[in-house]
Amino acid sequence: MATVKFKYKGEEKEVDISKIKKVWRVGKMISFTYDEGGGKTGRGAVSEKDAPKELLQMLEKQ
């Protein structure tokens, strides 16, 4: 499965596409929420050019 690499609050993070719950576009950025486990929801964003094609496909399906 594909992963998304991004920075959040200065920390490098990587999340599996299957854990992503919601995806939306903000200008040229793709924002998303994902399941961190333990009932927590994380947030992240990547630029449109750095987003994996699976993430862009999720955006188109909504």
Rank of each mutant, 00 (worst) to 15 (best):
Met1Cys: 13
Met1Trp: 11
Ala2Cys: 14
Ala2Met: 15
Thr3Cys: 10
Thr3Ile: 07
Thr3Leu: 06
Thr3Asn: 03
Thr3Met: 03
Val4Pro: 01
Val4Phe: 03
Lys5Phe: 02
Lys5Thr: 02
Lys5Ser: 02
Lys5Asp: 01
Phe6Asn: 01
Phe6Ser: 04
Phe6Lys: 00
Phe6Cys: 03
Lys7Pro: 13
Lys7Asp: 11
Lys7Met: 04
Lys7Asn: 13
Lys7Glu: 14
Tyr8Ile: 09
Tyr8Arg: 03
Lys9Trp: 07
Lys9Leu: 15
Lys9Ile: 02
Lys9Arg: 06
Lys9Phe: 09
Gly10Lys: 01
Gly10Pro: 00
Gly10Arg: 01
Gly10Asp: 08
Gly10Ala: 02
Glu11Met: 04
Glu11Ile: 10
Glu11Gln: 05
Glu11Thr: 03
Glu11Ser: 04
Glu11His: 07
Glu11Cys: 11
Glu12Val: 13
Glu12Gln: 06
Glu12Tyr: 09
Glu12Ile: 05
Glu12Asp: 13
Lys13Asn: 02
Lys13Met: 09
Lys13Leu: 05
Glu14Arg: 03
Glu14Trp: 04
Glu14Pro: 00
Glu14Ala: 04
Glu14Phe: 02
Val15Gln: 01
Val15Phe: 01
Val15Ala: 03
Val15Tyr: 01
Val15Arg: 01
Asp16Lys: 05
Asp16Cys: 13
Asp16Tyr: 10
Ile17Pro: 02
Ile17Tyr: 02
Ile17Gln: 03
Ser18Tyr: 13
Ser18Thr: 06
Lys19Cys: 08
Ile20Gln: 00
Ile20Asp: 00
Ile20Val: 04
Ile20Met: 06
Lys21Val: 12
Lys22Trp: 13
Lys22Asp: 15
Val23Ala: 11
Val23Leu: 09
Val23Gly: 04
Val23Asp: 00
Trp24Lys: 09
Trp24Pro: 00
Trp24Gly: 11
Arg25Asp: 07
Arg25Ile: 12
Arg25Met: 10
Val26Phe: 05
Val26Glu: 14
Val26Gly: 05
Val26Ser: 13
Val26Lys: 15
Gly27Thr: 10
Gly27Val: 09
Gly27Trp: 04
Lys28Leu: 13
Lys28His: 08
Lys28Gln: 10
Met29Phe: 06
Met29Asn: 15
Met29Tyr: 11
Met29Asp: 14
Ile30Ser: 00
Ile30Pro: 00
Ile30Lys: 00
Ile30Gln: 00
Ile30Phe: 11
Ile30Asp: 00
Ser31Gly: 11
Ser31Cys: 10
Ser31Tyr: 09
Phe32Cys: 03
Phe32Arg: 00
Phe32Ser: 00
Phe32Tyr: 00
Thr33His: 15
Thr33Leu: 07
Thr33Asp: 11
Thr33Tyr: 12
Thr33Arg: 05
Tyr34Glu: 00
Tyr34Val: 02
Tyr34Leu: 01
Tyr34Ser: 01
Asp35Leu: 06
Asp35Tyr: 07
Glu36Lys: 04
Glu36Val: 07
Gly37Leu: 07
Gly37Tyr: 07
Gly37Phe: 08
Gly37Met: 11
Gly38Arg: 06
Gly38Lys: 13
Gly38Ile: 11
Gly38Met: 14
Gly38Thr: 14
Gly38Leu: 06
Gly39Lys: 07
Gly39Ile: 13
Gly39Met: 05
Lys40His: 14
Lys40Val: 14
Lys40Glu: 12
Lys40Gln: 14
Lys40Thr: 12
Thr41Met: 10
Thr41Asp: 06
Thr41Leu: 07
Gly42Asn: 09
Gly42Glu: 14
Arg43Tyr: 09
Gly44Tyr: 02
Gly44Cys: 02
Gly44Thr: 02
Gly44Pro: 01
Gly44Ser: 02
Gly44Phe: 02
Ala45Gly: 04
Ala45Val: 06
Ala45Ser: 12
Ala45Phe: 11
Ala45Thr: 07
Val46Ser: 04
Val46Trp: 01
Val46Pro: 00
Val46Asp: 00
Val46Phe: 01
Ser47Pro: 13
Ser47Met: 12
Glu48Pro: 06
Glu48Leu: 06
Glu48Asp: 11
Lys49Val: 15
Lys49Gly: 09
Lys49Asn: 08
Lys49Met: 13
Asp50Gln: 10
Asp50Arg: 07
Asp50Glu: 08
Asp50Ala: 09
Asp50Trp: 13
Asp50His: 06
Asp50Gly: 09
Ala51Arg: 02
Ala51Tyr: 03
Ala51Lys: 02
Pro52Ile: 13
Pro52Asn: 04
Pro52Arg: 02
Pro52Glu: 03
Pro52Val: 07
Lys53Asn: 12
Lys53Ala: 10
Lys53Thr: 13
Lys53Asp: 14
Lys53Trp: 11
Glu54Trp: 04
Glu54Asn: 08
Glu54Gly: 04
Leu55Asp: 00
Leu55Tyr: 00
Leu55Trp: 11
Leu55Ser: 00
Leu56Asp: 04
Leu56Asn: 06
Gln57Asp: 09
Gln57Asn: 10
Met58Trp: 05
Met58Pro: 02
Met58Thr: 05
Met58Gly: 05
Met58Val: 12
Leu59Trp: 11
Leu59Cys: 10
Leu59Pro: 03
Leu59Asp: 06
Leu59Lys: 03
Leu59Met: 14
Leu59Val: 08
Glu60Pro: 15
Glu60His: 13
Glu60Asp: 08
Glu60Lys: 07
Glu60Met: 08
Lys61His: 09
Lys61Val: 10
Lys61Glu: 07
Lys61Thr: 11
Gln62Ile: 09
Gln62Arg: 07
Gln62Lys: 05
Gln62Ala: 11
Gln62His: 15
Gln62Glu: 11
